[in-house]
Amino acid sequence: MRPNPRLYPLLATIAIFFTAYLLCWLQFPFMLSTRVVGNLLTDNAYLGIVAVGMTVVILSGGIDLSVGSVIAFSGVFIAVMLRDTGLHPIIVFALLLVVTTAFGAVMGAIIHGLAMPAFIVTLAGMFLARGAAYMLTIDSVPIDHAFFEALQDSHWRMPGGGRFTLIGALMLLAIAGGALVAHRTRFGASVFAIGGGPDTARLMGVEVGRTTIGIYAFSGLMAGLSGIVFAIYTGSGYPLATVGTELTAIAAVVIGGTLLTGGAGYVVGTLFGVLTMGLIQTYIVFDGTLSSWWTKIVIGVLLLCFILLQKSLLRIATPVRASSEG
């Protein structure tokens, strides 16, 4: 049986990732070691988590530009709270997630309530969150906490010496959780429906307002979680961190096969989008002679290819029948 056309972009993403991996392996056999795989997961954990939230937003036909700033805010928030108060990191994390989720929910409420484009509202959110981070501190604040060091060091040593870290595992969990939310819940079905057409969605019984708030709250939650992971990864909070990460996340989502106009895509594709981008970076490190801007060029080319692929797939998928009006 012919595979369902809706799977083509996902299959293309997975094929590209494994082909690229194969090419890397042919040149540098060490690429297939568990060390490389472990680092691939660890280094891209924060990006993968935030991209899950972005996937849900883009599936609904929206966009969330605030997430990069929210990650930076999260790092600063954690660092300053741990420095200035005696609170346990777990409590700080919980507080942070409440704050970022509420922040997303408010943006969603504005987008729906005022019928404003998500682009503008989340752009305002981006400046607000970055500004809030600066308000807490303008310096890079190191995090010194025994529990934090334990988190940084928790890993499972895979055969071959690679480290499967806690934050790498968290990313995979986020992907799995995001996939369940998007594909197996009524909330997820509503997200796809809004991405397919908000007016039709309303006619089919979707509560567009509540769903929109939920979508951006989810993205805020994921950005907060990504901020925690980023803080664990870097061991500090810095208000200038992760500038432009929202755009990298969007690129990962699109390379992962999700339609930028909404309504079609898979969360698991985003994992492969993130890993593909990480793989390019790893290759450049292995090569040693290439400059890092090659990463950007390859990502740019990949993005263009995916936009073209989606356009042509849309053509194929749409039945050719000129509907004459009556």
Binding site: F192, A193, G195, G196, T200, A201, M204, G263
Partner: peptide, 17 residues
């Protein structure tokens, strides 16, 4: 007034999955 981007099954059972 159905959604082209969802499967036939999802359209038919939407809201009562």
């Amino acid at each position: 007034n159905l959604l082209d981007n969802l499967t036939v099954a999802k359209n038919l059972t939407f809201g009562r999955e």
